[in-house]
Protein backbone atom coordinates (compact mmCIF):
# COMPACT_ATOMS: atom_id res chain seq x y z
CA UNK A 1 0.00 0.00 0.00
CA UNK A 2 1.20 3.48 -0.83
CA UNK A 3 0.89 6.41 1.56
CA UNK A 4 -1.45 9.15 0.33
CA UNK A 5 0.95 11.76 1.65
CA UNK A 6 4.59 11.38 2.51
CA UNK A 7 6.61 14.10 4.17
CA UNK A 8 10.36 13.84 4.41
CA UNK A 9 12.29 16.29 6.52
CA UNK A 10 9.60 18.89 6.09
CA UNK A 11 10.23 22.07 8.09
CA UNK A 12 8.83 25.56 8.05
CA UNK A 13 10.26 28.90 9.13
CA UNK A 14 8.39 32.13 9.63
CA UNK A 15 9.75 35.60 9.83
CA UNK A 16 8.25 37.13 12.94
CA UNK A 17 9.41 40.65 12.17
CA UNK A 18 12.59 40.36 14.16
CA UNK A 19 14.06 36.98 13.37
CA UNK A 20 13.44 33.84 11.47
CA UNK A 21 11.58 31.42 13.67
CA UNK A 22 11.24 27.71 13.02
CA UNK A 23 7.61 26.78 13.69
CA UNK A 24 7.87 23.26 12.32
CA UNK A 25 10.95 21.19 12.99
CA UNK A 26 12.08 18.73 10.31
CA UNK A 27 9.34 16.14 10.23
CA UNK A 28 8.93 12.77 8.58
CA UNK A 29 5.37 11.51 8.35
CA UNK A 30 3.29 9.23 6.20
CA UNK A 31 -0.46 9.18 5.97
CA UNK A 32 -2.28 6.10 4.85
CA UNK A 33 -5.57 5.52 3.13
CA UNK A 34 -8.41 4.04 5.12
CA UNK A 35 -7.37 5.90 8.24
CA UNK A 36 -8.58 8.85 10.21
CA UNK A 37 -5.48 10.55 11.56
CA UNK A 38 -5.88 13.22 14.17
CA UNK A 39 -3.16 15.84 14.46
CA UNK A 40 -3.55 17.16 17.96
CA UNK A 41 -1.70 19.79 19.85
CA UNK A 42 -2.06 23.06 21.67
CA UNK A 43 -2.57 26.21 19.65
CA UNK A 44 0.67 27.46 18.21
CA UNK A 45 2.15 23.98 18.20
CA UNK A 46 2.50 23.95 14.42
CA UNK A 47 -0.26 21.49 13.63
CA UNK A 48 -2.08 23.77 11.21
CA UNK A 49 1.24 24.66 9.59
CA UNK A 50 1.82 20.95 9.09
CA UNK A 51 -1.68 20.54 7.66
CA UNK A 52 -1.23 23.40 5.22
CA UNK A 53 2.10 22.00 4.06
CA UNK A 54 0.51 18.59 3.59
CA UNK A 55 -2.28 20.26 1.67
CA UNK A 56 0.25 21.97 -0.63
CA UNK A 57 -1.16 25.28 0.45
CA UNK A 58 1.99 26.40 2.21
CA UNK A 59 5.44 25.73 0.83
CA UNK A 60 7.82 24.06 3.29
CA UNK A 61 11.07 25.87 4.02
CA UNK A 62 12.83 22.54 3.73
CA UNK A 63 12.01 18.93 2.95
CA UNK A 64 10.14 16.98 0.33
CA UNK A 65 6.50 16.10 -0.15
CA UNK A 66 4.91 13.23 -2.06
CA UNK A 67 1.22 12.95 -2.86
CA UNK A 68 -0.11 9.56 -3.92
CA UNK A 69 3.40 8.45 -4.78
CA UNK A 70 4.33 11.48 -6.86
CA UNK A 71 6.78 14.04 -5.61
CA UNK A 72 5.34 17.54 -5.65
CA UNK A 73 8.28 19.39 -4.14
CA UNK A 74 9.17 22.40 -6.24
CA UNK A 75 6.12 22.37 -8.51
CA UNK A 76 4.84 25.77 -9.62
CA UNK A 77 2.03 27.39 -7.70
CA UNK A 78 -0.47 26.69 -10.45
CA UNK A 79 0.64 23.09 -10.76
CA UNK A 80 0.21 22.70 -7.00
CA UNK A 81 -3.24 24.23 -7.27
CA UNK A 82 -4.16 21.57 -9.80
CA UNK A 83 -2.81 18.81 -7.55
CA UNK A 84 -4.93 20.26 -4.74
CA UNK A 85 -7.96 20.26 -6.96
CA UNK A 86 -7.47 16.67 -8.03
CA UNK A 87 -6.15 15.01 -4.89
CA UNK A 88 -7.35 16.95 -1.87
CA UNK A 89 -10.57 17.82 -0.19
CA UNK A 90 -10.44 20.59 2.37
CA UNK A 91 -12.75 21.17 5.28
CA UNK A 92 -12.00 24.40 7.05
CA UNK A 93 -12.68 25.60 10.53
CA UNK A 94 -16.08 27.34 10.36
CA UNK A 95 -16.77 25.59 7.04
CA UNK A 96 -15.31 28.28 4.78
CA UNK A 97 -18.37 28.47 2.59
CA UNK A 98 -18.61 31.41 0.23
CA UNK A 99 -21.58 33.43 1.44
CA UNK A 100 -22.47 34.57 -2.06
CA UNK A 101 -23.07 31.04 -3.29
CA UNK A 102 -25.88 28.64 -2.50
CA UNK A 103 -25.02 25.41 -0.71
CA UNK A 104 -25.03 23.49 -3.98
CA UNK A 105 -22.93 26.10 -5.76
CA UNK A 106 -20.48 26.05 -2.89
CA UNK A 107 -20.14 22.32 -3.27
CA UNK A 108 -19.70 22.60 -7.04
CA UNK A 109 -17.23 25.48 -6.78
CA UNK A 110 -14.58 23.26 -5.26
CA UNK A 111 -14.35 21.02 -8.27
CA UNK A 112 -15.16 23.53 -10.99
CA UNK A 113 -13.02 26.49 -9.98
CA UNK A 114 -10.64 26.01 -12.87
CA UNK A 115 -13.30 26.26 -15.55
CA UNK A 116 -16.36 28.19 -16.58
CA UNK A 117 -18.61 25.22 -16.75
CA UNK A 118 -19.64 22.47 -14.40
CA UNK A 119 -18.60 19.03 -15.62
CA UNK A 120 -21.50 16.86 -16.74
CA UNK A 121 -22.93 14.75 -13.94
CA UNK A 122 -21.20 16.76 -11.21
CA UNK A 123 -24.38 18.48 -10.14
CA UNK A 124 -26.16 15.14 -9.82
CA UNK A 125 -23.24 13.73 -7.84
CA UNK A 126 -23.32 16.76 -5.55
CA UNK A 127 -27.03 16.22 -4.93
CA UNK A 128 -26.36 12.56 -4.16
CA UNK A 129 -23.72 13.61 -1.63
CA UNK A 130 -26.13 16.11 -0.10
CA UNK A 131 -28.58 13.28 0.21
CA UNK A 132 -26.01 10.99 1.83
CA UNK A 133 -25.01 13.75 4.23
CA UNK A 134 -28.62 14.49 5.12
CA UNK A 135 -28.72 17.99 3.70
CA UNK A 136 -30.61 17.32 0.46
CA UNK A 137 -33.31 19.80 1.43
CA UNK A 138 -30.80 22.60 1.76
CA UNK A 139 -29.16 22.47 -1.66
CA UNK A 140 -30.63 25.82 -2.65
CA UNK A 141 -30.18 27.47 0.73
CA UNK A 142 -27.61 30.17 1.29
CA UNK A 143 -24.90 29.51 3.88
CA UNK A 144 -26.38 32.01 6.34
CA UNK A 145 -29.59 29.98 6.37
CA UNK A 146 -27.75 26.85 7.51
CA UNK A 147 -26.73 25.73 10.98
CA UNK A 148 -23.04 25.25 11.73
CA UNK A 149 -23.33 21.50 11.32
CA UNK A 150 -25.18 21.82 8.04
CA UNK A 151 -22.57 24.26 6.76
CA UNK A 152 -19.81 21.89 7.70
CA UNK A 153 -21.59 19.06 5.87
CA UNK A 154 -21.86 21.24 2.78
CA UNK A 155 -18.11 21.81 3.13
CA UNK A 156 -17.62 18.05 3.36
CA UNK A 157 -19.73 17.55 0.24
CA UNK A 158 -17.58 20.15 -1.49
CA UNK A 159 -14.44 18.38 -0.36
CA UNK A 160 -15.73 14.97 -1.48
CA UNK A 161 -17.04 15.95 -4.87
CA UNK A 162 -13.66 15.49 -6.50
CA UNK A 163 -13.25 11.99 -5.03
CA UNK A 164 -10.08 13.16 -3.29
CA UNK A 165 -7.39 10.82 -2.06
CA UNK A 166 -7.05 12.85 1.11
CA UNK A 167 -9.51 14.85 3.12
CA UNK A 168 -7.79 17.53 5.19
CA UNK A 169 -9.89 19.00 7.94
CA UNK A 170 -8.89 21.96 10.06
CA UNK A 171 -10.73 22.07 13.38
CA UNK A 172 -13.98 21.07 11.70
CA UNK A 173 -15.89 20.80 14.96
CA UNK A 174 -14.52 23.73 16.92
CA UNK A 175 -17.52 25.91 16.10
CA UNK A 176 -20.14 23.19 16.46
CA UNK A 177 -22.44 22.05 19.23
CA UNK A 178 -22.30 18.48 20.52
CA UNK A 179 -24.92 17.07 18.15
CA UNK A 180 -23.61 18.76 15.02
CA UNK A 181 -20.09 17.84 15.95
CA UNK A 182 -21.10 14.19 16.30
CA UNK A 183 -22.80 14.16 12.91
CA UNK A 184 -19.77 15.72 11.26
CA UNK A 185 -17.33 13.37 12.99
CA UNK A 186 -19.47 10.34 12.16
CA UNK A 187 -19.39 11.45 8.54
CA UNK A 188 -15.63 11.89 8.52
CA UNK A 189 -15.10 8.58 10.27
CA UNK A 190 -17.31 6.84 7.73
CA UNK A 191 -15.39 8.47 4.89
CA UNK A 192 -12.12 7.31 6.38
CA UNK A 193 -13.35 3.72 6.06
CA UNK A 194 -12.87 4.01 2.32
CA UNK A 195 -9.64 2.13 1.63
CA UNK A 196 -8.78 4.58 -1.13
CA UNK A 197 -9.04 7.66 1.02
CA UNK A 198 -7.22 9.08 4.01
CA UNK A 199 -8.68 11.63 6.39
CA UNK A 200 -6.43 13.93 8.36
CA UNK A 201 -7.99 16.10 10.99
CA UNK A 202 -6.33 18.86 12.97
CA UNK A 203 -7.91 19.60 16.28
CA UNK A 204 -7.57 20.28 19.95
CA UNK A 205 -11.17 19.34 20.57
CA UNK A 206 -11.21 16.28 22.89
CA UNK A 207 -14.56 15.22 21.40
CA UNK A 208 -12.66 14.26 18.29
CA UNK A 209 -10.15 11.91 19.91
CA UNK A 210 -12.38 8.85 20.14
CA UNK A 211 -12.70 9.00 16.36
CA UNK A 212 -8.98 8.78 15.74
CA UNK A 213 -7.52 5.69 14.16
CA UNK A 214 -4.18 7.29 14.68
CA UNK A 215 -3.20 10.17 16.88
CA UNK A 216 -0.20 12.32 16.11
CA UNK A 217 0.56 14.83 18.82
CA UNK A 218 2.44 17.96 17.86
CA UNK A 219 4.19 20.09 20.44
CA UNK A 220 6.53 22.99 19.81
CA UNK A 221 6.71 22.17 16.12
CA UNK A 222 7.70 18.55 16.73
CA UNK A 223 5.90 15.25 16.65
CA UNK A 224 5.60 14.52 20.34
CA UNK A 225 3.94 11.17 19.83
CA UNK A 226 2.38 9.01 17.18
CA UNK A 227 0.18 6.05 18.03
CA UNK A 228 1.14 4.38 14.80
CA UNK A 229 4.41 2.58 14.38
CA UNK A 230 6.40 3.92 11.53
CA UNK A 231 7.17 0.47 10.24
CA UNK A 232 3.61 -0.65 9.69
CA UNK A 233 1.43 0.66 6.98
Amino acid sequence: MEPVIRLEGVARDFWDGVRRRRVLQPTDLEFWPGELTVLAGPSGSGKTTLLTIMGLVLAPSAGRVWVAGEEVTGLSEDALATVRLKRFGFVFQSAGLVPALSALDNALAGRSIQSDRVAPGLRERALELFDELGIADYARAMPTQLSGGQQQRVAIARALLGEPAVLLCDEPTSALDVDSSRVVLDTLKRLARDPKRGVVLVTHDPRVFPYADRLVKIEDGRIASDTKDKAEG
Partner: peptide, 29 residues
Protein backbone atom coordinates in the same frame (compact mmCIF):
# COMPACT_ATOMS: atom_id res chain seq x y z
CA UNK B 1 -4.74 -0.85 22.00
CA UNK B 2 -5.22 2.09 19.62
CA UNK B 3 -8.01 3.32 21.84
CA UNK B 4 -5.72 3.09 24.86
CA UNK B 5 -2.87 4.79 23.04
CA UNK B 6 -5.14 7.62 21.95
CA UNK B 7 -6.71 7.89 25.39
CA UNK B 8 -3.35 7.93 27.20
CA UNK B 9 -2.01 10.59 24.89
CA UNK B 10 -5.05 12.79 25.02
CA UNK B 11 -5.84 12.49 28.72
CA UNK B 12 -2.37 12.81 30.20
CA UNK B 13 0.44 15.30 29.63
CA UNK B 14 2.60 14.35 26.67
CA UNK B 15 5.64 13.02 28.48
CA UNK B 16 3.55 11.01 30.93
CA UNK B 17 1.27 9.69 28.19
CA UNK B 18 4.27 8.68 26.10
CA UNK B 19 5.94 6.89 28.95
CA UNK B 20 2.81 4.96 29.76
CA UNK B 21 2.03 4.29 26.13
CA UNK B 22 5.40 2.90 25.14
CA UNK B 23 4.83 -0.65 26.50
CA UNK B 24 1.41 -0.64 24.84
CA UNK B 25 2.91 0.48 21.54
CA UNK B 26 5.42 -2.38 21.79
CA UNK B 27 2.64 -4.79 22.57
CA UNK B 28 0.66 -3.47 19.62
CA UNK B 29 3.60 -3.94 17.31
Amino acid sequence: LDAWLVALRTTLPSATGDELALPLAELRA
